[in-house]
Design a protein around this nucleic acid. Structure first.
Lengths: 329, 329
DNA sequence: TATAAAAATGTAAACGATTTCATTGCTGAT
DNA sequence: ATCAGCAATGAAATCGTTTACATTTTTATA
């Protein structure tokens, strides 16, 4: 495999000149440029990024930390990140942490060892202390899920308000007994969405009943099924459920169907995230749409700016309540 | 940021010794080893992979080529690849080609430029000629989708037989009018699955009707809806559909529901792939399960062997017909 | 035409590791 | 006490680029 030396020799110039041609610098005459290009062609030369990266002290790789690759919520965000990355000549390394600190650390090592230039973290269970420590030396952006007040820039939506609007929608179409299907309150977004839920109820003069608030271990389909089973078993059964993720809501949907009940007739359901599948269910799912693609592009731009040494501010993007069959009168 | 030189200085040894400690070579005395480790701690040293990679002429990165990140079919495969990769100290770069030769070429460039050590291609629309050319110089494995007879090792299932068994199942539960929802026959798997469909019908003395065979542009949900709409409009309507992907089948399901018909009562449906979501629909979907995780691990092992310079053979794994509600009597 | 300025090119030093080969320091056998 | 043989260590080359600085060539100006 040819290297730059051999190209230089073949073209009868120095390696510096070859490098200049390679990088499109204009301080090289047309004649030599042609010579060099001809040599490159003859030798089938491809510049090695290994050499270049070492010399430039960069890897041009961006790490994306997600808890689980199976959660479709992240897909659009990843697309957004990827498009910006590619157009800036970066590549992305997709890292599934399983919310496991050990796996997490393997990936953190990649930036410590210069194999990655920066990190976009979307793992809500990320170890905030490690992240904070890391952020002192390396470029890090939090996306969608974030630890608040730790000085690492993030991009997100107003979770409290989004939740408020979803619940308000249920109230407006006449529901008063509304259950909340939430995850562990160790997650900031879970706390925020609960607050929105509470505020909406209070605005309508309805007191929050603890029996109507459920916590799931995780955001998956099965968790939604399990929680829904409990909800259906309540004596004074709610007539609507607001789930903090679409997968939870889809699990709920399935369980309601299995119980022979009708959505939205017997039980209205709202999800969160507007994943692709939320439109494929029967009935289709009312959900809160996060601008996922935009979140991805925003996060990527911020990170690249940060890698360049710039200073970036956190961003809060707009959400949208998408009303579909699962709450349609 | 400290480098190996500074560590050597701090420890009062040569860089060679530090390197030996780093790589766990045993030809270094306990005393010096401790000195070096102490120096590493003091300086907070982390070895740079950029230097190491250049020296070793490797990137320890594996490329995964998939047509679309949104297709959940690939997720389990990717997990399988990732686990093997990690345990062999490789990282994976996930590349979405959109079946676009231009994007594809960007990623091929990564291996040409030494930024990746090998490729696992899962894109059925990959440019076979380029791939073949590339395979002469670089390690390449095809997974799940493959161009046959081009001398690049692959891992797959017996698509013809899988299709045969799916259709046979429909025949056994009494269906005789069975539609096939296929994709473009430029894909090998599409041709193979059609052959299985034909063989099953012929085995039962049923002639293949061209009006019952539909081709979709793509493997997505909407394609399934569109095709189903056509199927429902046929005069002598089939009573069962075999779709070559779960997403197609789920689109069909939705459309059948929308038409006020019942699954499986009015129309039985079988999908292909056993994606997570196939168990979340209502009714749940009968489908052909590919051993996706295993396909991933197999492909990864093969690739790593190939990178090491070894010779590897193609692998054909077992599939399984998973019977669920959408075909249940 | 001589000369200053500008353009084109070259030389050699990084970047940060690994590894071959050479050297030093020991141990133990004679 | 000598020396072979082995273990531990070091010096320096190497991987393939980019780039600061030096040098040469060209161009423009008087």
């Amino acid at each position: 495999m040819a290297n730059i030396q051999q190209v230089a020799k073949q073209a009868g110039v120095s390696v510096a000149t070859v490098s200049r041609v390679l990088n499109g610098q204009n301080s090289v005459s047309v004649k030599t440029k042609l010579k060099v290009e001809e040599a490159i062609r003859q030798l089938n030369y491809e510049p090695s990024m290994l050499g270049r990266n070492l010399r430039n002290s960069e890897s041009r790789i961006i790490l994306i930390l997600i808890p689980s690759i199976s959660n479709p919520f992240y897909l659009e965000i990843i697309k957004g990140i990827e498009n910006i990355a590619i157009s800036h000549n970066y590549n992305i390394l997709l890292c599934e942490t399983d919310s496991d600190p050990k796996k997490e650390d393997i990936y953190f090592d990649l930036v410590r060892k210069k194999m990655a230039d920066g990190i976009i973290s979307m793992d809500p269970a990320v170890n905030v202390d490690t992240l904070k420590e890391l952020a002192k030396k390396y470029a890090i952006i939090q996306c969608s899920e974030y630890g608040g007040g730790i000085g690492i820039p993030y991009v997100t939506i107003d979770n409290e308000e989004a939740s408020y609007r979803a619940v308000k929608h249920l109230l407006q179409i006449g529901h008063t007994k509304i259950a909340l299907m939430n995850t562990d309150e160790k997650f900031l977004y879970a706390r925020e969405r609960k607050m929105g839920y509470q505020r909406a109820l209070q605005d309508h003069g309805i007191s929050v009943k603890n029996e109507y608030v459920f916590y799931t271990q995780d955001l998956g389909f099965e968790n939604g099924q399990q929680a829904m089973r409990k909800i259906l078993a309540i004596d004074d059964r709610p007539t609507a459920v607001f789930a903090v993720s679409d997968l939870l809501a889809i699990g709920a949907l399935k369980e309601i169907n299995a119980a022979g009940l009708n959505v939205p007739g017997d039980m209205a359901v709202i999800g969160f995230d507007k994943i692709d599948f939320s439109n494929m269910t029967n009935p289709t799912l009312t959900t809160v749409a996060q601008p996922m693609y935009k979140m991805g592009t925003a996060a990527a731009k911020m990170l690249i700016e940060k890698i360049k040494g710039g200073n970036v501010d956190s961003v809060i993007l707009d959400f949208e309540l998408v009303i579909r069959e699962s709450t349609a009168g």
